[in-house]
Nucleic acid binder design. Structure first.
Lengths: 249, 249
DNA sequence: CGGCACGTGTGATACAACTCACATTCGCTT
DNA sequence: AAGCGAATGTGAGTTGTATCACACGTGCCG
């Protein structure tokens, strides 16, 4: 199952790629140190695609033929069990890269990628990308750093899920998301639904909702539709550090 | 906290490194394609160290100054929460590499490393290792593959912990460990205590024991002291694939 | 050949989180 | 402005695991 729900494929992106969209990628840690010439060459390999909400980009187990980056919207990386439950690994926002694992090691995809909102993405074929990396060793080092960062993110997730109970896991997830989304320094708004958080954290939406309501009355968070605002990160951080102790929660 | 319980540090390993011990590392996917000359050079950078059971090699949060490899024995990668519980990420056996994340990205260590048995390890300093990688781009590609493999391992762990209940998680852990340890093709003996498995899986030893006993009466596994033998992997695999359905367990 | 630490085995009880079954609110589409 | 789907809010009842509190086996070390 690949590329269902694609609105339209633009031409392969040879010349005249919308340059404002590329500016964001140009600033990505992976590419920021690359010479302009090399970056332009990479862009000529890229395809620009638009997906509508709910569309599947690829599924777990598919061969990994392409590296992707989000231009606008968000892509959900998740897996689902046969009995219908699903777990979200990560939500990928504008300027972020995804799908790199399968591309780099040539194995199958580790998760499903679906458009969580309508979105524009940027796709590079493995056959063009790999030789490019080989001829740019400094890029390989950048990818090593990228993989390390993902590994830290995922290890954190294991740590929280194994060691913490509901309040701890939820607090930890909120903090991680707030750090990641950090748009403006003051703005702690996280654009996720309660259903989504519940799937990241591995607990039911109902349980998450009840805990969030408790915190809302304490003014630690404010609940909006499709978003959560972290008003006071301190007590949440304290909860995470205290381990799975209950202490009045 | 670094290097407590070190039995003795041999000299820095310049010349005359015990070559039988290196043979194992030479075969590691990371190094097997390296020219002998380069490999020898790397060995001259290495230090040989012996640790006794329980010794701490490094702790989560320490600066990551060295890359390590196990020669003999096993090293436990784990984290612990303030309330005393702990979670095991992985057990590193002979011929395996660990501590690469912090070395490669220059950040702090993501977990504690302790000697799970008396063991011999092989240590390379970051200051010597990084330049070596930079001057051997093919090695960088190998490390990318290594990181991808670790990421797959860790993602699997998240998937199981979030989606599965006790039987599913336990079955999944047993299968993963059996694949990893796979010494002889027929031998499905996993050298771990029930306590250790419980910490890998995030459930209590008691619960794990009760489930294992059920499977033992069904001849799916045999329990030994400090080890578990997988007799029939099929029904375990089926359990994992069925998701968290209970079906007579 | 103790003895002592570590690993294993097992039941009774408690509770955190799930399930199910709704009611409510929001925001978009027509 | 009406309607509808998606997101949120909430309670009563159920259950999977944790906790606690033991007893037993085994193997190593002095």
């Amino acid at each position: 199952m690949v590329m269902t729900g694609v609105l339209h494929d633009k031409n392969s992106g040879r010349r005249s790629f919308p340059s404002d969209k590329l500016a964001m990628l140009r600033k990505h840690p992976i590419f920021c140190d690359l010479e302009s010439e090399a970056f332009d060459q990479l862009c000529r390999y890229a395809k620009h695609t638009t997906l509508k909400r709910g569309a599947t980009l690829f599924s777990k187990g598919d061969p990994g033929n392409s590296l992707c980056a989000v231009i606008s919207g968000t892509v959900k990386m998740s897996i689902s069990s046969p009995d219908g439950r699903s777990a979200i690994f990560n939500l990928i926002g504008p300027g972020e890269i995804f799908g790199e694992i399968a591309v780099l090691d040539g194995q199958s995809r580790t998760a499903d990628a679906t458009a969580n909102t309508n979105c524009e993405i940027f796709v590079i074929d493995r056959r063009e990308f790999l030789p490019f990396v080989r001829s740019h060793p400094e890029l390989a080092m950048k990818f090593i750093e990228l993989l390390c960062a993902k590994l830290r993110w995922t290890s954190d997730q294991v740590e929280q899920v194994i060691l913490q109970n509901l309040p701890g896991r939820l607090a930890s997830a909120l903090i991680r998301l707030a750090d990641k989304h950090k748009l403006a320094p003051g703005d702690r708004t996280i654009a996720v639904t309660q259903q989504e958080i519940s799937e990241m954290v591995g607990m039911t939406r109902e349980s998450i909702n009840k805990q969030l309501r408790v915190w809302a009355t304490r003014k630690w968070v404010r609940l909006e539709h499709g978003a959560i605002v972290v008003l006071d990160a301190e007590p949440l951080q304290a909860l995470v550090e205290a381990g799975s102790g209950s202490e009045g929660d």
